[in-house]
């Protein structure tokens, strides 16, 4: 039972990579965590001010800005995860600035 419980716990975790112009952030999140949680954590680690209107996109679908309230679990359908490996999401942290 313990083994089964541990397995379930592991399944809940998602390996997250966030690429930015300041470098790369890697961590683990739960399926129930939101895009906003990833943005906040990555920006803090990478030293990027969140006031700069940061937006997160999936590396495989960079044209679609993700809703901050979207859960990571719901994004896994975009990825073709290897069943033997932990689920993984690769994001790109972007901003478009203000047109001047």
């Amino acid at each position: 039972m313990k083994e089964k419980a541990d397995h379930k716990k592991d399944d809940d975790l998602i390996e997250v990579v966030v690429k930015s112009q300041n470098g790369k952030y890697e961590s683990e999140f739960r399926r129930s965590d939101t895009v906003q949680a990833v943005t906040t954590a990555a920006a803090a680690k990478l030293g990027i001010d969140q006031a700069d209107r940061l937006e997160l996109v999936l590396e495989k679908d960079r044209g679609k800005v993700l809703n901050p309230s979207t859960t990571l679990g719901s994004l896994l359908e975009y990825e073709h995860s290897d069943m033997d490996k932990r689920a993984k999401l690769v994001f790109v942290l972007t901003a478009i600035g203000n047109g001047v």
Binding site: Q21, A95, G97, N98, V100
Partner: peptide, 8 residues
């Protein structure tokens, strides 16, 4: 334009 251009 009220945007921090430094990171870019």
């Amino acid at each position: 334009q009220d945007f921090n251009w430094h990171p870019y």
